[in-house]
């Protein structure tokens, strides 16, 4: 059983725990596919979704997951709350606790913020992305999508191409996938590779061909326009040429390879439009996996809470 109050990162989640989450998520997915959207494991529980950064897909995914599980859901956008009046995260956590929340799902622009919240809050904390640190449910949904296609994670060659440095998605995937025995390759402009990432198990590649050679999974990462303005690379055109995934570069990959992207995609930059809509693309499947994975994590954390109570 997943024995955790919070899920903040995959850095310290072991293979057994990952497997339990993915198995539970696969179950959830079966129910959802059967049209069963009422799985009341969290009936009578309250979930508050606290987003300090804009998001559509992750926020709605968490909201739907909580609702399918029968929880009462509150949404707080930090810009319109007491946070805008200068309330500290510690005080926000205490307030939300006093309102008897069972789970706090937070996205925050600063790495480590969920640890601070988890320290002060009795409620379980789910990290929905913290700065450049982690985005565990995104990596879990990626892993679920891969596992469904290949039937395994062990031994898979996963090529992650793009802005690794600022990507909490890449980092959580690196932790989760290497724990499960997959090979994680990374390819990016030198300015967008974080120092020491190879010491964490990533295989740094020096060309698109090297990264994609025999790859089972090709994952693009969103490039923020402000990275170009900050001088990390000269133009989107040049980025697309050297670091974008197109039909030509996909020829290096395993013929059975799948294409993934955490979204939203800049069409023609990270992926060409043709590749997004390609039969190999699993981008929409990722979205569906997202709901199932978030339901699974909420259920398992809740089981542990009930067990502790």
């Amino acid at each position: 059983m997943l024995k955790r109050k919070d899920l903040i990162g995959l850095i310290d989640v072991n293979a057994e725990e990952l497997t339990e989450i993915l198995d539970t998520a696969a179950d959830m997915k079966r129910h959802l596919r059967d049209g069963d959207k009422q799985l009341p494991y969290l009936r009578g529980k309250t979930v508050t979704i606290l987003f300090y950064e804009n998001s559509t897909r992750t926020r709605t995914s968490f909201e739907l997951a909580s609702k399918y599980l029968g929880a009462t859901v509150i949404n707080i956008a930090a810009g319109s709350s007491s946070v805008a009046k200068g309330e500290t995260l510690v005080d926000t956590g205490k307030t939300l606790d006093a309102q008897l929340n069972d789970f706090l799902i937070m996205r925050h622009p600063m790495g480590g913020a969920p640890y601070l919240l988890a320290k002060v809050a009795k409620a379980g904390v789910l990290n929905a992305g913290d700065g450049m640190n982690e985005h565990p449910t995104q990596a879990l949904l990626d892993m679920l999508t891969m596992r469904e296609h290949f039937g395994r994670l062990e031994g898979l060659k996963v090529a992650i191409v793009g802005d690794i440095k600022h990507s909490r998605v890449a980092k959580s995937n690196l932790f989760g996938l290497t724990t499960m025995g997959a090979e994680v390759r990374m390819f990016a402009p030198e300015t967008l590779i974080p120092k020491g990432i190879d010491k964490l198990g990533a295989k740094l590649c020096s060309s698109k061909q090297e990264a994609l050679d025999g790859a089972d999974v090709v994952m693009g990462l969103r490039i923020q326009l402000e990275r170009q303005q900050a001088g990390n690379f000269p133009s989107l055109n040049e980025y697309a040429e050297f670091y974008g995934v197109d039909g030509k570069s996909l020829q290096y990959a395993n013929p059975n390879a799948i294409i993934m992207h955490p979204g939203p995609v800049n069409r023609g930059v990270e992926l060409t439009g043709k590749e997004i809509d390609h039969e190999k693309s699993r981008i929409e499947e990722q979205v569906f996996s997202g709901i199932a994975v978030r339901m699974a994590v909420l259920k398992l954390l809740n089981d542990y809470r009930n067990h502790q109570a």
Binding site: I11, G112, G131, K195, G196
Partner: peptide, 12 residues
């Protein structure tokens, strides 16, 4: 800036 900043996702 180094391995620890990468592990923590904090700006180096």
């Amino acid at each position: 800036e180094g391995l620890s900043s990468t592990i923590a996702g904090l700006k180096g």
